[in-house]
């Protein structure tokens, strides 16, 4: 019987036929079960011997059944899996992926550096009063320095701000010293557009006001920015320059270890110690707003730079006009880590 059973088990090629074989031998009325049923009629001694024999047969059949079942199940699964196989090299659904504008990326870098140093961030109006853009920044109406900033004047007598420095004034009116802030936003110059000039661009402005703030604090701060942007070893160079709202004033350059080409000093922006006339103008405006005069006795520094220039250098963008053309083939490149 055992041989017969093993033969039938081996011959079963589906789980169903195997089940039939199992029932035939092991079921309630299966052959093995029946055989076991006959034991009762035997004498004790004979029953013991016969019982042991049948148990061996039953165990062998059971083992064969299990083995065969496992094999058939595996084969069935293999067949199912094989039938489910797909070509994974075909593209998935073309869902969108977005990205930030490169100017936002540069702002994020810069502002990240300054917020880590405890600076607040401020933003403000782009249409501005002449007073906030010029007069309060020690650029009187007749001053030749106004020619450095060709201005879009508005029919109503206001103007498009020529720099984010207006936010120095607005922020100091709103907030008391001591303070550390950076301001971001669009600025405008009445200029013909070419590869390096735009009528609209962006600036980052910084302002620190406190007691005993010195020019070395300014240089150290710019150096921290340089380290944050370009890593350890970034160097800062100051050269005297002129911005009416600071005295002394300087231009700053950062030594840039260019991974793709020649390393060099990059003129990145202007800075200086806040001119006392600016503090006075702020206190005058605060007084008009019913606020105490808190700035005249303070010292501070300010700096400004353009994210477009940093972005052009950092990403190798050849033309400033790319920033506002919003060409998907250009904008789509600024994702993830960019070397």
């Amino acid at each position: 019987m055992q041989e017969q059973a093993i033969q039938e088990i081996n011959a079963a090629d589906t789980l169903e036929t195997l089940q039939a074989v199992k029932t035939k031998y092991m079921g309630k009325s299966g052959l093995v079960t029946k055989e076991l049923g006959t034991l009762g009629k035997l004498a004790p001694e004979e029953r013991r011997v016969r019982g042991a024999e049948i148990n061996v047969i039953r165990a062998a059949i059971q083992a064969a059944l299990e083995e065969k079942e496992a094999g058939l199940k595996r084969a069935a699964l293999d067949a199912k899996l094989a039938s489910e196989a797909i070509d994974v090299t075909l593209p998935g659904l073309g869902l969108p992926s977005g990205s930030l504008h490169p100017i936002s990326r540069v702002y994020d870098d810069l502002i990240g550096i300054f917020t880590r140093m405890g600076y607040e961030i401020a933003e403000g109006p782009e249409v501005e009063e002449e007073h906030y853009n010029f007069e309060a920044l020690n650029i009187p109406w007749y001053h030749p320095a106004r020619e450095l900033q060709d201005t879009f004047w508005l029919e109503d007598g206001r103007l498009l701000r020529t720099h984010t420095s207006n936010m120095q004034i607005r922020y100091m009116i709103e907030h008391d010293p001591d303070l550390k802030m950076v301001s971001r936003g669009k600025v405008y110059r009445y200029e013909a557009t070419d590869a390096t000039h735009e009528a609209m661009f962006h600036q980052l402005e910084g302002l620190v006001v406190g007691d005993g703030i010195s020019m070395t604090d300014l240089k150290g701060t710019i150096a921290e920015m340089a380290r944050g942007l370009y890593g350890a070893g970034a160097k800062v160079r100051f050269q005297p320059s002129y911005y009416p709202f600071v005295e002394p004033g300087a231009d700053f350059a950062i030594y840039w270890e260019n991974p793709r080409g020649e390393s060099k000093w990059l003129e990145l922006g202007g800075c200086g110690m806040v001119h006392p006339n600016v503090f006075k103008a702020v206190d005058d405006l605060r007084e008009l707003a019913g606020k105490p005069r808190l700035y005249e006795e303070k010292t501070g520094f300010a700096f400004g730079l353009g994210p477009e220039r940093i972005a052009m250098l950092k990403y190798g963008i050849p033309d400033i006009r790319y920033f506002y053309a919003n060409d998907p083939r250009v904008m789509g490149q600024f994702r993830g880590e960019l070397g």
Binding site: G118, Y171, I213, R237
Partner: peptide, 27 residues
């Protein structure tokens, strides 16, 4: 100017400045 050392300002910002960044952080 080449001889200018580098230091960092030491100050504690006035309370009125705290939270000034919120609108910008929201953006």
């Amino acid at each position: 100017f080449v001889n200018l050392p580098e230091t960092l300002p030491h100050l504690r910002v006035h309370d009125s400045n705290l939270g000034a960044s919120a609108p910008s952080e929201n953006r």
